Simulated scan of single mutants.
Amino acid sequence: MLLWWGIFVAASPVLEGAEYLLIFGPLFLTLLLLFVSGIPLLDASADKKHGHLGAYKFYKKTTSPLILLPRGVYGNLPGWCKTIFLYELPLYNRNLPQEDAVK
């Protein structure tokens, strides 16, 4: 995602007129990764497969879904900061399902 945005930014000084429509490439890719095929699908499948493991719960609580940060830094950030600056949106299903009380 950052590569496509970098290419657009690097090419922007020479773009003229309708060539600025090229922004739809990185914008479309970003929307796909954030809302459709990237983070939501990957999180949902990983939750289904590993959601019952304690180590996975710890990993999910301390690991950023998009922007790489050290676990100690990310784990201590407030929720509003994660949402605004790191694009951790509520639809990413970051909360794992609770285990059944009776098995």
Score class of each variant (00 low, 15 high):
G75S: 13
W5S: 00
L27Q: 03
L77R: 07
Y74C: 00
R71P: 10
Q98I: 13
W4S: 13
A44E: 12
T62A: 07
E19N: 12
I67G: 08
I39V: 15
P13N: 07
L41I: 11
K60L: 01
I23V: 15
G75C: 09
K103T: 02
A44F: 04
W5G: 11
Y87S: 11
L15R: 03
L33C: 07
G75Y: 14
G54H: 03
P40D: 10
K49L: 06
P70W: 09
H50C: 04
L3M: 01
P40A: 00
L31V: 01
Y74S: 08
F58C: 02
W5L: 02
L21W: 15
L34Q: 08
I23A: 05
A46G: 08
L34T: 10
L31E: 01
T62K: 15
P78D: 14
I84W: 05
G17V: 01
F35G: 00
F8R: 10
K103V: 14
F35E: 03
P97M: 04
S12C: 10
L27M: 13
V102N: 02
P65L: 15
L91D: 02
Q98K: 13
E88A: 14
I39A: 10
L33D: 09
Y92F: 14
L3V: 15
D47G: 01
G72F: 15
L32D: 05
L32M: 08
L3I: 05
V102M: 05
L77Y: 03
F35N: 08
